[in-house]
């Protein structure tokens, strides 16, 4: 257990915990776009920056991304100094120039009083903020179907050669985790298309509703030993089946009691 001072208040935290986790627990509002508990922090978006200092090092202070700064005993943290606010505003301003059409960024900008970016709008912007959440989550799955391609300002998230990613299983984890919702996908009754790759969907044998892509089901069967039949019907039909099965048991029990 360590003690840290957050905005003047002494708070307890577990050793090794990341600062952002503690700040969130304390109910302090820290913006963070690239942070997600299911993936390792990487510090791409820089929004969760806070100022740290220590009583024993007079005059020393530093700005760190709280998402990957492990707490240390005696740390003094300030989350809303004018410098910290200036950093956040500038980053959001830059992102607004980069992603002018993103609702998430627009809303965040408005919260910081920015209604129009101070910079020139990036012409080829695709509203991706390059947080790598998608590539990181795909890596957790062990698939790494997509990756960051090129470098610097030309960097984009893309499948190899910009074509159908051979390793993609159509699970949608990337699209779902995306903080700015810029990974498009479409479902028909029996297919799903993402990253230009079209997948067959398993459709419920009783009602025909889509359940999951075949590739994802096969992946779960192989990786996590889930029986094939679990994927054959949709959740609603499975509930009905459960009701019927339980009903049978109840009926049998009642008949037996009579």
């Amino acid at each position: 257990m360590v003690h840290i001072t957050i905005n003047g208040k002494v708070v307890k935290a577990a050793e090794g915990e990341m600062l952002l986790t503690v700040l969130k627990r304390e109910g302090i509002d820290i913006p963070a776009l690239c942070h997600h508990e299911a993936i390792e922090p990487t510090g791409n978006c820089r929004l969760c920056m806070v100022e740290i200092s220590r009583a024993e090092w007079e005059g020393w202070k530093k700005h760190v991304t709280s998402c990957l700064y492990p707490v240390e005993d005696g740390l003094i943290v300030n989350t809303h100094t004018p410098e910290v606010i200036e950093i956040r505003k500038t980053i959001i301003d830059l992102q607004l120039a980069n992603c002018p059409d993103s609702d998430v960024i627009q809303k965040m900008a408005e919260e910081y009083g920015i209604y129009k970016t101070s910079y020139e709008t990036v012409p080829e912007g695709d509203n991706c903020i390059m947080c790598y959440a998608c590539t990181r989550i795909c890596e957790v799955l062990g698939k790494s179907a997509i990756s960051a391609v090129m470098r610097g300002h030309k960097k984009v998230i893309a499948p190899p050669f910009g074509e159908e990613p051979p390793d993609c299983i159509g699970c949608l984890a990337c699209a779902q985790i995306c903080p700015t919702n810029v990974i498009p996908w479409t479902d028909t009754d029996s297919t799903r298309t993402i990253w230009k790759k079209t997948f067959d969907l398993i459709t419920c044998t009783s009602c025909g509703k889509a359940v999951i892509t075949k590739d994802f089901a096969e992946y779960l069967m192989a990786q996590r030993q889930i029986p094939k039949e679990y994927f054959e019907t949709c959740d609603e039909c499975k509930r009905m089946a459960t009701a019927r099965k339980m009903g049978e048991i109840v009926t049998k029990a009642q008949e037996a009691a009579l």
Binding site: E37, C171, L172, I202, F216, E229, R239
Partner: peptide, 19 residues
């Protein structure tokens, strides 16, 4: 905080109780 809404659990639950 850790869920990415991939829907694996919804598909996998044999009783249809993840929604």
């Amino acid at each position: 905080e850790r869920c990415v809404k991939c829907g694996a659990c919804v598909a996998a639950c044999p009783f249809g109780c993840a929604l």
